[in-house]
Design a binder for these strands. Structure first.
Lengths: 111, 111
DNA sequence: ATGATTACCTTGTCTGCCAAGGTATAGTAC
DNA sequence: GTACTATACCTTGGCAGACAAGGTAATCAT
């Protein structure tokens, strides 16, 4: 297996796809959820996430629709398509393989 | 702790520093060693590693010297400086934290 | 001699991430 | 009522990392 070049840099894509594979979310919610679950290790920026979502939508991984919240504020919810689900699975697998490979090298280096 | 932006993309830097924290190596050797230990998962390219080594040298993380191999071929060996050793430790720690955080998010997503 | 491998290097391109800025609404504090 | 904060969306521009592609030159095997 070869890592996409994109993947080596693309932790953000992995996170988005992973979160959306649980349920549909809107952009701002993804930011907060990632921060919460990682104990604030991840602090993705809006300038990172919105363009990423748009790009994934164009690529056919996501499907978006506007929903009104109770307060009347409009939110754009994103859900995985079938293609997106395959991407999510693939990226997770790649990440696991990557982390195993990194550990194989760090491990040699003292421990 | 916050990840350097650089780190999120910079697996290559981590690998180089880790390998050099074991012993001095020359560029080409690093490529091969990374590939060998990762069971060919990593196939770093020369266009990646040489500029990276030069940059780390400029940053004062590495010290380089030319050595002749038995065959008479010249090789440029790189060794960590004290500063480089601190960097290596820091980057390893960051990587471990990153992988924990990613797993915290992937974990929620079905498993 | 021809090609593969070792070993170094640089330039140009593509893309990801983010800082910075912008819009607009809802809730809270004074 | 007005200022501030948080929510929620968005875009533009710049910087840096990874690599494809190309180059040099020596050694080794056929």
């Amino acid at each position: 297996m070869n890592y996409d070049r994109e993947f080596l840099t693309g932790t953000v894509g992995l996170l988005i796809l992973s979160l959306l594979s649980e349920r549909a979310m809107y952009g701002y919610e993804i930011l907060q959820e990632a921060e919460r679950r990682s104990a604030s290790q991840f602090q993705m920026k809006e300038g990172t996430i919105y363009p990423a979502l748009h790009q994934m939508e164009r690529a056919g991984w996501l499907k978006a629709d506007w929903r009104e919240s109770k307060s009347g504020r409009a939110r754009r919810y994103y859900a995985l398509t079938a293609k997106g689900r395959r991407q999510a699975t693939s990226k997770k697998r790649q990440w696991v393989a990557l982390s195993v490979a990194v550990r194989a090298i760090l491990g040699g280096a003292h421990g």
